[in-house]
Computed example of a mutant assay.
Amino acid sequence: MDRLSEDIAAAEDRYARIIESTMEARQRRDSLAGEVMALYSERARLIEEISALRVSALELKFSPPAGPPPVPATLPPAIPPVLRPARTALSSAGALWSARAQSTAKPRNDSFGSGAHITWRQNEDRFRLTPTDDGVLAAVSDGAGASGLFCGAWAETLVGQLPATPLESLKAFNDWLDPFCLEFHTTHARHSKSDAAKHSKFVREGSCATLTVCWLRFSGSRAVLHWLGYGDSPLLVFDRSGGEPELIAGHPGSLGAFDRDPQLLNWKDMPDPGSLKTGSLPLPARATVILASDGIGQFTLLRALAAQRGGNGTLGAEFRRLETNGNGRLGTAVKSHAARAPQSFAAELAALGAALESESAFAALVASRCEEGLLANDDSTLIMIEIGSGC
C-alpha cells in the first residue's frame, strides 16, 4: 500500500511538472508571437520610410528654384486616364519601313463584383509608335497589375515619357526616369488617400511594369536598331533576306526567362543595373522587328523555333531540351508548339501582320490561338515593324 501511494505521488508530481512546462511553453509562444508581430510592424514602417526618403530625394533633386510661388496646378481627374489614343499604323514616305500595332485584353477576362456592379479587369499593357526625324520610336510596357497599384497608368507614363534618342547607359536611364517618378507618386497618392488600404498598398508596393523600346534610325537606305529592355517583354529581330525569316537577335536572351518572375520598373525603387539590357545592331536590307508583351511575344518566338525545329544557337538548343525534358508551363508550351509546328514561319508572320490591321482582327487571332492552347490567356500587345523591299 505504501508503494502504491508513492507511485501515485510520483505520477502526480510528474503531471504537475508537465502542466508547469506546458504553461511556460505557452508563455514563450505568446512572447514569440508578440515579437513576430512587432517585427512585421517594424518592417512595414521601414518600407514606408524608405519610400518617403526616395520621394524626398527626388523632391530635393528636382525642386524649383527660389522665387515667387507657382500658380497651383489644376488637380488631375479623380480617376487617372488608363489609355490615351495610340498610333496603330505608320510608314515612311519612301517605303523604307512600315509599322503596325494592336493591343487587346485577355480572351477569358476577369471581373469583380456582382449583380449590376460588375467591373471587368482592364488591359494594363501600353504601347507607343511615334515617327522621329530619322526613323521611328516603338515601345511596349506591360503593367504588372498583380503587384502594386496604378500599373496601367505607370506603363503609360513610361512609354509616354520616352525620348526620341536612345537611352544607352544606366546613367542615362536613371536621369530619364527620376524626374517623372516624383510627379507620378504625387499625382496618384491623391487618388488613393481616400482609401487607407489602397494608399498603404500604393506606398508599400508602388507601381510595376516592364519596358521594351526600340529606336529605328535610318541613314540613306541603311537601318540601325537601338534597343532597351527591362523585364520580359520580348524584342525579336528577323532577317527576311532569304526564303524563311531567320531570328538574328532577341530579348530576353533565353526561353527560361519566361518561366521566372521578371524584374519590374517601379517609381519607388532604383532600377537593378543587371536587369537593364541595351544594344544596337545594323539591320539587313529586309527585316522584321517585333516588340510584344510576354504572352504573345513568347508565342511568336516559339512558332519561329518550332518551324525550324529549334534551329541553331543557344535558343534552338534550349528549345530541343525543353521539348524532350521540359516541365511546368514553359515545358508544356514548347511541347505544344513542337507538336503543331508550322510548315512556314513566313506564313505565321504574315498572319500576325494581317491581324494587326484592326483591333477586332487582332482580338480574334489572340482568342483563336489561346483556344488552341498555343497562346497563354493574357493581355496581348504586339508591334511589327517591317523594313525594306516595299515592306
Rank of each mutant, 00 (worst) to 15 (best):
A292S: 11
I50E: 02
R54H: 14
G295Y: 01
Q308V: 03
S56E: 15
L83A: 14
R320P: 13
P273K: 06
G256V: 00
T132N: 05
C208A: 12
A249V: 01
A367L: 05
L283W: 05
S114E: 15
A138D: 03
S111K: 10
A223P: 00
A66L: 04
G388A: 09
A355T: 10
Q308I: 00
D239R: 03
S280V: 05
R222A: 11
T324Y: 07
S368I: 03
N174Q: 15
V71S: 06
R303H: 10
L225I: 01
F319R: 06
T300W: 00
G279V: 12
T104C: 08
T130Y: 07
L330G: 11
R29N: 07
L382S: 04
R29T: 07
A338W: 11
A354D: 12
E20K: 14
M384V: 13
K171T: 15
V55W: 14
S241V: 12
S56G: 15
A249I: 01
E244D: 12
G206H: 11
S254N: 05
I47P: 00
C214E: 09
L167I: 15
L211D: 11
P85G: 10
P234H: 11
R128T: 05
D239A: 00
W97R: 10
T104R: 00
P273S: 04
A139Y: 00
G67D: 04
A339Q: 12
A361G: 12
P179V: 08
R29P: 02
E323W: 13
A89N: 11
A223L: 07
H185W: 14
R321H: 13
T165Q: 12
L281W: 07
P76N: 06
D175A: 13
A333N: 08
Q343M: 06
M37I: 02
A347K: 14
T74Q: 14
S344W: 01
A9C: 00
W267T: 08
L32A: 08
S380C: 14
T119K: 12
A164N: 10
W215L: 06
S200V: 08
A223R: 04
L375Q: 11
T324N: 07
A89E: 15
E12V: 06
K268R: 15
A57H: 13
T288P: 04
S280D: 04
A287H: 05
G243V: 11
E205F: 09
D239N: 08
T332Q: 15
R190F: 03
C181G: 10
K106V: 03
F184A: 00
S5P: 04
R14G: 02
N174V: 13
P69T: 02
D261K: 15
S233D: 03
L330I: 04
T186Y: 00
G295Q: 08
S21F: 14
C391V: 15
G328D: 14
C370Q: 11
A10N: 06
L53W: 02
I47A: 07
R43Y: 14
P76C: 07
A93P: 01
L236C: 04
P72H: 02
H251F: 05
T212L: 02
S219H: 09
A11D: 09
P77L: 06
H337S: 02
E205I: 01
F150K: 09
V140G: 00
L216V: 11
A38S: 15
T119W: 06
S368F: 04
L46F: 09
P284S: 05
R3Y: 07
R84D: 13
P252L: 05
D125F: 03
T324W: 05
K61M: 10
E156L: 02
